[in-house]
């Protein structure tokens, strides 16, 4: 079992959380978005080895937040509420 930290609730069991995607992968806007840009948004993931920034949601309280963690050792560095995080 691993504990993740919800910015509102504090440490909770990892099973209470759901992955929401890479932070910073913003949906393209406008009618003239190229196919490559859509493909990048929909399918192309960075999948980094090491430090990564991701969007997660705590299913019980509904808090969306940015989690900074390490994909190698699974260590969680920070959890920041989405409205105060630089996720763009």
């Amino acid at each position: 079992m691993q504990l993740f930290t919800c910015p509102f609730c504090g440490p909770r069991d990892e099973t209470e959380f759901h992955f929401g995607g890479e932070a910073g992968n913003l949906r393209p806007d406008g009618a003239d978005v190229t196919a490559d840009r859509w493909a990048s948004y929909l399918y192309m993931r960075d999948n980094p080895k090491g430090a990564t920034r991701e969007i997660w949601v705590h299913m019980n309280c509904g808090e969306f937040f940015v989690m900074e963690r390490d994909t190698v050792n699974h260590k969680v560095e920070t959890s920041i509420a989405l409205d105060s995080a630089e996720h763009a």
């Binding site: 440490p11 069991d13 099973t15």
Partner: peptide, 21 residues
């Protein structure tokens, strides 16, 4: 029912209890 420490406290009373929210 839960892995949450009842003495630790948590801002939200919503939690997984026996797997149910």
């Amino acid at each position: 029912a839960t892995t949450l420490d009842p003495s630790a406290g948590s801002a939200s009373a919503a939690l997984s209890f026996a797997g149910a929210n």
